[in-house]
Design a protein around this nucleic acid. Structure first.
Lengths: 352, 352
DNA sequence: GTGAAAGCGCTAACAA
DNA sequence: TTGTTAGCGCTTTCAC
């Protein structure tokens, strides 16, 4: 019974030593070659690469991170991955990060503080080099943990007085002004606004910018035409219905985001209202789907690519900052109007 | 000039040694305590936990992974994060994985082989303990890399003859039969099918199941009513138009996925066709949005939660398999019909 | 039950 | 330019 079965010993995954041995160099040389240290001679570098190829060697990221102290992981926390705006954003962020040799840790807070706490904990445990907090304003409670752990962060529309925190400012104003002007040019004077939840900074900003734009255009803001919704399709439906229940109604509705606007489109259709003949609707975000609503949605474009780029850049600067160097702490992403089919001249019978 | 500025030395992030020192035990005891090894005495364990708390200590995941050989990271590769089906899937997978102490690495192949290769490379470099390849059939070329690196994987609708590969079978048949029967019950006999790209296994399976279901229902399959689309909204528009250009047309269309169906809904509307009065439309997936189309989409539900659960379970079993133990290698996720407003009786004037 | 010590695979400081 | 070596923070034998 003592006979030893002859088993093929599975070849260990190759490590830096096997590469060094095969290339007949030291492990330091292998390391230098891989990391592009400028001192390795071509002759040796060539041998090293050959060995790497032959062994199909992949450096062990954990060992690397452990010793270098750099995880090369960036975190991104979004509000709700189920809102099409965010997958598009994540995709851009991922692309950029991967192109720069970073890995990303995605998580979605679902506007739930408990989940957010878990997200942050995961980020800290995995030693991310920075976190893009793109929840648009629900973030305060967790920011301290991040700050405590000295993790760089970039926040959308929120200034944190921390040396490691950068801010992305969203210039909604430009887009919103353009939208109001567009509506005014079409002849609208009665414009309502379906806001986002007031717990979200960006929602408040958007609403304020709406008010300012209305004033600038010389239009009256009707307080009861401003309704707090929740940035979802259903929220848009509810908001529309509340507006409809009023005796005096707007001829155009600006929505705090596209999902809300899509909800309005849907509710208006069910109500028998024609867009844009009976009602003009404007969204904000310009998610991919906006082009395909019926009618195609006029909206204020907030470029996911620009946003992702700014977020990455802010984090990269923090992560790769040489001490003493000065970095950009504030980034601006602008918005612009995309006129499509959901806006038109107001119905003539409506009181001007 | 030699005066040394007095600077507050930032406290290093606490490590296992600081905890051990504070608790007056060895680092081995700290490690055992954290990992729930059953041998630590209550007395010491208590001291250790107190020290951990006091220092706000987080174990270093990389060091842990390096020595234990377990990254506790699972990869998930999806076809296209921009298709609403996938964010919903990712969200479920993330929830389950995080609940079990795993981190996840998400990436989206965008049906681009070059990107897919990068995805796989990232997974390998980060030493994931398993990968859920949910691209639904474009995966072969990269599977070998994963297999070569001995990484467990779970594939949707694809058997790979590798000890580390598990398969999730999608039982489309049940749902598709139910859909055809539903249509037949309404009086439809002329049913078309907008297929997905033939390069995708699942698309082919769905098409075959459509044919089989038609035969079972005693209905004739018209080859020219089966059109290959690409699982996008635009694809649905194009498919619909091709169907419309025919002299003899179906009264109902089954689509290989919801995005295609939404495209059909949109194109039909623009064409002046009323759904379901003039045309019945059925989707497949039941993405969240399906409930909100106009009219609400009748569709075949493919539960993201079930799929995510199966994927995680397959990977977990592989990753935590004790040698010799036998594990489940095949999982089944079923489908069911969700009847909503996009299906109805066929138009009377149309030839039966 | 507890501790000492040997690495996990790699980078970086220092020597040569 | 290249090699030697000391750890990075942790888990895990192996003694006690």
């Amino acid at each position: 019974m003592a006979r030893r079965a002859i088993r093929k010993i599975p070849d260990k995954t190759p490590d830096i030593r096997s590469v060094a041995a095969l290339a007949k160099v030291s492990i330091a040389t292998v390391s230098r070659t891989i990391n592009g240290a400028p001192v390795v001679s071509d002759r040796l570098a060539k041998r090293v690469w050959a060995a790497i190829e032959q062994l199909n060697y992949f450096p062990n990221t954990m060992a690397r991170s452990l010793v270098s102290g750099r995880s090369r992981i960036l975190g991104i926390i979004v509000e709700n991955i189920t809102n099409p705006f965010f997958p598009e954003l994540i995709q851009s962020f991922e692309e950029i990060a991967v192109a720069h040799g970073y890995e990303i840790l995605v998580s979605s807070s679902n506007s739930d503080p408990a989940i957010l706490t878990t997200c942050v904990r995961r980020m800290i445990e995995r030693k991310v080099e920075g976190v893009a907090v793109l929840t648009f304003g629900e973030e305060e409670p967790v920011l301290e943990q991040l700050a405590y752990h000295d993790i760089p962060m970039v926040l959308a529309e929120f200034h944190l007085d921390d040396p490691k925190a950068s801010t992305i400012l969203l210039d909604y104003s430009t887009g919103i002004r353009a939208a109001i002007q567009h509506l005014a040019d079409l002849g609208h004077t009665r414009i309502g606004f379906l806001a986002g939840p007031h717990t979200i900074h960006s929602a408040v900003t958007r609403e304020n910018d709406f008010r300012a734009a209305m004033e600038d255009a010389g239009l009256t803001v009707h307080q009861n035409w401003i309704i707090e919704c929740n940035h979802t399709l259903k929220g848009g439906v509810v908001g529309f219905e509340r507006l409809q229940s009023l005796s005096s109604r707007p001829t155009a509705i600006l929505c705090s985001n596209d999902m809300t606007a899509i909800g309005v489109l849907r509710a208006a259709y069910l109500k028998g209202l024609k867009v844009p003949q009976d009602l003009s609707v404007v969204g904000l975000d310009d998610i991919d789907f906006a082009e395909f609503t019926l009618p195609p949605l006029t909206t204020i474009r907030l470029s996911r690519v620009d946003l992702a780029r700014a977020a990455f850049e802010a984090l990269r600067q923090q992560a790769e900052k040489s001490s003493g160097a000065t970095i950009q702490r504030e980034f601006l992403v602008s918005t612009s109007l995309v006129a499509r089919g959901s806006t038109g001249t107001p119905p003539s019978e409506s009181g001007r």
